[in-house]
Nucleic acid binder design. Structure first.
Lengths: 133, 133
DNA sequence: CATATTGTGTAATAACATTACATCTGGCAG
DNA sequence: CTGCCAGATGTAATGTTATTACACAATATG
């Protein structure tokens, strides 16, 4: 079992609700977007969202896009190896596509090595224009 | 002349002050860190900092670290080609080292191509532990 | 000189995230 | 069964980061 074995994760009601909102959205959702969509389900404070997100992030079910301060559902089964995750963010329509790439993670490690730096985690966010625009 | 020809940029007083703070700091500085350090020079509002940063960012003299919401001075002469910039952030001491790499930018473009995505800009932030720790 | 562009000062507000503290729930050791 | 404990929850308050709005000043350019 890897650190990202989704099948064995038990989610609470709040965690499921948050995951559903993020999964169902076409665009990245901010914590406050999520909060607003869950008011009908009894959510009243941002912390309820952030706590659920913490767990979803820890298990790789959701990713945080740093440059947007927003969250998307994971589009890939992770835990399959040493692949880097790359997010391609379209500046026209805001959609985000998640890709994985082993070359990049290799290059990154090689680059880090020359510096004596030990890589734990990488966040790669690419801005540009998607196929449709 | 490239988009990042630093030598030809004329900075105003506020912009120089902000650049000096960022350049002089060992660690990434938040906008409010900078504001506090410039109160003695007459800075009173965050916007004064953000406006100066806007220009410094536009000219590549300063970089924003998305995962830290903080800013560092550029450590490389950019505009030298199609190299990707990689920030290595030490989780132990908070220091950031800026590297450039042409392999990664190539991989990134190749990866994007399979998606029909046209890359304008890439932000790569790596977390880990630096040589000293 | 007239005008356009860029920069500035200040206040208010918006957007994103965390701390603190009390309570609840479910599993499990005794 | 019972008492305890870890994780989850509810709520309020606060902290941190960033922007909008508006009036005015400085500088460059025709």
């Amino acid at each position: 079992m890897t650190a990202h074995d989704h099948s064995s994760i038990v989610l609470t009601r709040n965690q499921k609700l948050v995951l559903d909102v993020v999964s169902g959205a076409k665009l990245p959702q901010s914590a406050y977007d999520i909060l607003d969509k869950l008011r009908g389900d009894g959510f009243k404070a941002p912390l309820q969202v952030y706590r659920a997100l913490d767990k979803l992030l820890a298990h790789g079910l959701v990713h945080r896009l740093e440059s947007l301060s927003a969250f998307i559902a994971c589009q890939h089964p992770h835990g399959e190896g040493r692949a880097a995750t790359v997010f391609m963010i379209c500046d026209e329509c805001g959609t985000v596509s998640e890709q994985t790439d082993t070359c990049i993670s290799g290059d990154l490690r090689k680059l880090a090595k020359t510096d004596g730096f030990s890589v734990k985690q990488a966040n790669i966010e690419v801005r540009g224009v998607c196929r449709k625009h």
